[in-house]
Lab assay of single mutants.
Amino acid sequence: MATKAVCVLKGDGPVQGIINFEQKESNGPVKVWGSIKGLTEGLHGFHVHEFGDNTAGCTSAGPHFNPLSRKHGGPKDEERHVGDLGNVTADKDGVADVSIEDSVISLSGDHCIIGRTLVVHEKADDLGKGGNEESTKTGNAGSRLACGVIGIAQ
């Protein structure tokens, strides 16, 4: 089992970053940390998408990683996509320092995120509470600013 993974985020604009993942036990939580720069100040949706395909930019990554066919939600919700990591918060300089621990994603097994795409979005994720159909699919997080395929790390 891989215990570490990394993702280099890039987009068409100024947004870029490096996100690290570490899972010490196969059924334990995954620590997610790193930094994203070039964002507007505020909240930005942060999700693992189904495919590791960036051939047409971030759009070819498909929908959120959702092997259990659930509705979109927040990272602490029972009803959520596996890939729903909530929001990252950018400061006035456009930098989001990421520090998350998640017990639904994994670096092995059915919820493995390796080979899938991590995406940072234009807007805040409403965590499935926006009151419309799009909220239950995407959290109304808007366009995909930057993305990268999650790969095994040393």
Rank of each mutant, 00 (worst) to 15 (best):
N140P: 01
V8R: 06
G109H: 14
G11W: 11
S108L: 09
K31A: 05
F51V: 01
S69R: 14
V120N: 02
V104F: 05
G45E: 01
D77T: 14
V88S: 11
L43A: 07
N66P: 03
G131W: 08
G45Q: 02
G42Q: 05
D91I: 06
S143C: 04
G11D: 08
E79D: 12
D102F: 15
N54E: 13
G62A: 00
N87R: 02
E50W: 04
G109C: 07
S108W: 11
D77C: 05
F65M: 12
G17A: 09
D84A: 01
V82C: 08
R70Q: 09
G42M: 14
I18T: 13
F65K: 02
H72T: 02
G130H: 08
V48D: 03
I152L: 04
P67S: 09
S103G: 07
D102M: 11
I113P: 04
F46K: 03
V98H: 03
K31M: 13
A5C: 11
E22T: 08
S99M: 06
G94A: 08
D12E: 15
K31I: 14
E122T: 07
T55F: 02
K123F: 14
H81A: 02
L107V: 13
L43I: 13
I105L: 05
C147Y: 04
I105R: 02
G139L: 00
V6D: 05
S106M: 12
E41F: 05
A146W: 04
I36L: 14
V120C: 13
E79F: 15
G86I: 01
A141E: 01
L68G: 05
P63R: 11
F51Y: 05
G74N: 15
E50Q: 15
A146Y: 03
S103R: 13
V98F: 10
C7H: 01
L127D: 07
G109I: 10
K4E: 12
V88G: 07
S106T: 13
G86W: 01
K24W: 15
I18C: 07
K76D: 10
K10G: 15
E133Y: 11
G17H: 03
V6C: 13
K123I: 07
W33H: 10
N140D: 09
R144K: 03
L118C: 15
G83P: 03
H49V: 00
A124L: 08
A146D: 04
L43F: 08
N66V: 04
D77H: 11
D125G: 00
E122Y: 07
L145I: 13
E25Q: 13
H47S: 01
V15K: 07
R80H: 12
E78H: 10
K71F: 10
T3Q: 06
H72R: 02
K123R: 14
V104M: 13
D102H: 05
T3Y: 14
G86S: 05
S108N: 09
E133W: 13
D53N: 06
K31R: 07
K137W: 10
D12G: 11
S143D: 05
D126T: 03
V48Y: 01
S106P: 10
G86F: 00
L39F: 06
I113H: 00
Q23L: 15
L68S: 10
I36D: 01
E50C: 15
I113N: 02
I150Y: 02
G139H: 04
N66A: 11
D125L: 01
V30I: 12
G86A: 08
K92P: 14
V6P: 02
D125S: 02
Q23G: 12
N140L: 09
G86L: 01
H121M: 02
D102T: 04
T117C: 09
F21M: 11
E79M: 11
G83K: 03
P29D: 12
I36Q: 02
G62W: 01
V48N: 01
A56C: 06
S35P: 10
